[in-house]
C-alpha cells in the first residue's frame, strides 16, 4: 500500500515537506511495512546490488537464452561503447547495461523485476549509468529506486503494469516513466519537474503493443528496454531544461490505461499479432517449439 494515489499528490507532499519524492516514499513505506527506515533502505540497497550483478552476468559474450533466440548483444554494445560511437560512451554504455540486464533475464539469470521482468533493463540502464559515470552517490542511486518505485506503485494502482492488460506501454512505458522521475531527482530537479518527466516518458511510449515472438520475453522485449532508456533520458533532460508537459502526468497515466484497454487481445501478450505474427516471427516460434499444437 502507498498513501498516495496520484502523482500530483505525491509531488505536492514532497514540495510541502521541502523534501524529495524518495524521502516521502521511504517514510511512507517504512510506516506501511512497520519497519525502521534503515531496514527498508537496506532492502532497496540490496536490490541495486542485484541490478549490478545482472549487468555483469549479461555482459558475458557467451550468454544465451534457453530458446537460443538471444544473448551476446550486450557484449557487442559494450565493446562498441568503448569506441565512442555517435552518442558517446555514456549513452552507449547505458544501452549496453539495458541489453545486459534483459539478456541475463532471458538466460534465466537473477534480475530485479522493475516493474516487470520484461522491462527489467530500464532502471539499471539509467540509474546505474548515472552512478557508474560518477554523477551521483550510491545512496542517491538507492533513493532514486524509491522514487521510481513510488511512481510505479501509483501507475499500478490507477492503470496497470501488465503487458497482458495494457501492452508494452504498461511495462516498458511505465518503466521509462519511473526511470525518468528517478533521473530528475538524481540531478537535483524539483518534484514538479519529475512529474513533467514522468508525463513526457509515458506520452512517448503510448500505444506500444506487446507482441512477443513465440510468447517469450526476448524479441522484441530486450531491444525495447533500450528504447525505454532513451525515452527516460530524453524526458528527464527536457524536464531538467525547464520544458513542461502540456498534459499532466496523472492524465497521461489514465490515457495509458484507456489505450491499453482499447488494444485488441492479439496485441496484449498473446503472441497472436504484431511482430509475433510476422512470417519470421512464426518461423522462429516453430524452430523453438516445433509445430505441435501444444506450443
Amino acid at each position: 500500500m502507498l498513501t498516495y494515489q496520484r502523482i500530483d499528490e505525491l509531488c505536492q507532499a514532497a514540495e510541502q515537506a521541502g523534501s524529495t519524492i524518495s524521502r516521502v516514499i521511504l517514510a511512507d513505506q517504512a510506516g506501511q511495512l512497520e519497519l525502521e527506515e534503515q531496514a527498508v533502505y537496506d532492502q532497496m540497497a540490496r536490490r541495486l546490488q542485484v541490478m549490478r550483478e545482472s549487468v555483469r552476468t549479461g555482459m558475458d559474450p557467451d550468454i544465451r537464452s534457453t530458446s537460443g533466440l538471444s544473448g551476446g548483444d550486450a557484449a557487442k554494445m559494450l565493446a562498441y561503447a568503448r569506441e565512442g560511437g555517435i552518442c558517446g560512451p555514456f549513452i552507449n554504455s547505458a544501452i549496453a547495461r539495458a541489453l545486459a540486464t534483459s539478456e541475463c533475464n532471458a538466460a534465466m539469470g537473477k534480475i530485479v523485476a522493475a516493474p516487470t521482468a520484461g522491462s527489467c533493463g530500464i532502471l539499471p540502464g539509467t540509474v546505474l549509468s548515472v552512478l557508474e559515470a560518477g554523477q551521483c552517490t550510491e545512496e542517491q542511486a538507492v533513493m532514486a529506486l524509491f522514487t521510481a518505485g513510488g511512481i510505479g506503485t501509483v501507475i499500478s494502482s490507477r492503470a496497470t503494469l501488465a503487458g497482458a492488460e495494457g501492452g508494452c506501454q504498461a511495462e516498458c512505458g511505465a518503466a521509462a516513466a519511473m526511470a525518468a522521475v528517478a533521473l530528475v531527482e538524481l540531478k537535483g530537479g524539483s518534484p514538479a519537474q519529475a512529474a513533467h518527466a514522468c508525463a513526457m516518458a509515458l506520452k512517448n511510449q503510448l500505444g506500444l503493443v506487446c507482441d512477443p515472438v513465440a510468447g517469450l520475453v526476448e524479441v522484441p522485449c530486450i531491444k525495447r528496454n533500450v528504447a525505454g532508456v532513451m525515452v527516460a533520458l530524453s524526458a528527464a533532460e527536457m524536464a531538467l531544461a525547464g520544458i513542461v508537459s502540456k498534459i499532466p502526468a496523472d492524465e497521461c497515466v489514465s490515457a495509458m490505461y484507456e489505450v491499453g484497454c482499447a488494444l485488441p487481445a492479439s496485441l496484449r501478450e498473446t503472441a497472436q499479432g504484431g511482430l509475433a505474427a510476422t512470417p519470421t516471427g512464426k518461423r522462429l516460434k516453430e524452430e523453438i517449439f516445433g509445430s505441435s499444437p501444444e506450443a
Binding site: V112, T153, M178
Partner: peptide, 20 residues
Amino acid sequence: MNVFDIIGPVMIGPSSSHTA
C-alpha cells in the same frame, strides 16, 4: 502492493508471471 513489489521481486528470469 508496496514499493518492493514494483522494484522487485528479485527473481530468476525470464518472466515474472511464467517463472517467478
